[in-house]
Design a protein around this nucleic acid. Structure first.
Lengths: 253, 253
DNA sequence: CACCCACTAGACCATCGATCCGGTAACCCG
DNA sequence: CGGGTTACCGGATCGATGGTCTAGTGGGTG
């Protein structure tokens, strides 16, 4: 494996840092989307040449990996893990202060997204509530940066993502799952899939897919009847409920 | 919305057809992966110029959309729907003869993939078995073409994909779900997410991510202990079981 | 004061998706 | 039968991209 996380970070002396690059990449992605992120444009925003970026970063994919992991920093853990060894630059794991100042709505273009349950704070009341809180926050963070959906096909091996996955494993183990692998896997799959599907479907103009399906109502009657314009938040919660209920059932045995 | 499916198909007179383009694109993707699919290379394999392709297709994304939908043709429906109106060229919905001749293992590079439950034939025994069969076949088809994982962030609006989604809706409705939207949504999410995650994680060399996590066992003890090298098929089935159990529980009420 | 190393950047390369523009062969209509 | 329209093909080319080569520059250290 060869990615940003496994390579040792080169020390920086000042001026342009990895942190600034990632920060600006995030801004660029949020404002213009993933297709408009080019090394030249990113360099321009940083008042430097594109070549310079390659001193701090090996490939463009590194930038994307770093930006993607930075998203996970916004996901607050119900009960934070004790901090451990220092981290590579540009990816300190979870700010000291809660990121409550991050606006819940930073969607550049389309309609409201993730307008419902945003990453919640500490939660008590059983493992289901904890997991639900984490998954909601996870989803909300990704939806706040819709470009992430295009990028979720790469390994989530950054410190921030790993820390949250670790927390998920711990929670499930504590809850009594002897082998939490399948459970954690299912939950991650569900969140990723739902984000991708939602972004995909609502990125086109509203009602467009509806019209598309209505024209083909003869061939796809059930689809045309129910439509694809979900109430996203409620639907997500409902499906998550199915998953959690099934897990609880298996846990009791 | 502007994609291949909504534009009227131009009639072809012979020689190079959309079907041949899609067929060759599929072969190219299977052999060399998504990054090596370029219009020039595709044209070369078809003994033509890259420009010619643009007469049959508007953009490269069209080729990808068509190829992705072609995958779904391999997913056999437990009980086929009655055929309806004619379809746009290059995407006849489901061959007449079952595609049993498609090799279950067409993986170009890495280790075995989707080696377990392949798309099964007709299934009786309740809605759960039907849905499970459909989802297994869905997953197996995508895993047979790992490049699809990179592309799943685009709308699945092709006739083959729609037909299968329609079938899912019908099955759920028949099973007694008054509003099958959330259920169908959850199932699709789960399959897509699991495919993406599996392809992502096993595309790197085996054990590599394991070593990566082992080195950081102090910070991520639970992750390092359970590892990420899943027994993919079993894990998928287990998670699917959770989902189905939760859905059944909600259905009974 | 000399040197070195972190850091910057202009020019450049191969390649890509897509288009311009000039063809050619089959078919339709008078 | 013959002129023209339509369906189709492709070489050359455009603008943009990711990434490298090479030549610097400036501050800190010995």
């Amino acid at each position: 494996m060869d990615n940003v996380w496994s390579r040792p970070a080169k020390p920086s002396r000042q001026t342009l840092t990895l942190d600034r690059i990632v920060e600006e990449a995030l801004a660029l992605l949020d404002e213009e989307g993933v297709t408009r992120l080019t090394m030249r444009r990113l360099a321009e925003r940083l008042n430097t040449g594109s070549t310079t970026l390659y001193w701090h970063v090996k490939t463009k994919d590194d930038v994307l990996d770093l930006a993607l992991d930075a998203i996970f920093r916004e996901v607050r853990l119900p009960t934070p893990l004790p901090p451990a060894a220092p981290n590579p630059p540009g990816n300190r794991p979870l700010d000291d202060r809660p990121r409550e100042d991050v606006p819940a709505e930073t969607r550049p273009k389309g309609g409201p997204v993730g307008s419902g349950p945003v990453g919640v704070g500490p939660v008590d009341g059983g493992w289901q509530a904890q997991v639900r809180g984490l998954m909601r926050g996870w989803r909300a963070a990704l939806l706040r940066h819709p470009w992430s959906a295009t990028i979720l096909d790469r390994p989530l091996m950054g410190p921030n993502a790993l820390e949250r996955t670790e927390f998920l494993y711990e929670t499930l183990t504590t809850a009594g799952f002897p082998a939490p692998k399948a459970a954690a896997f299912s939950l991650s799959n569900y969140v990723m899939g739902s984000v991708i599907m939602q972004v995909t479907l609502q990125d086109r103009e509203e009602g467009d897919t509806g019209a598309f399906l209505s024209e083909r109502a003869d061939r796809y009657p059930a689809l045309a009847e129910h439509g694809l314009d979900h109430e996203w938040d409620a639907t997500f919660d409902e499906g998550l409920g199915y998953l959690l209920a099934g897990m609880e059932q298996a846990r009791k045995k």
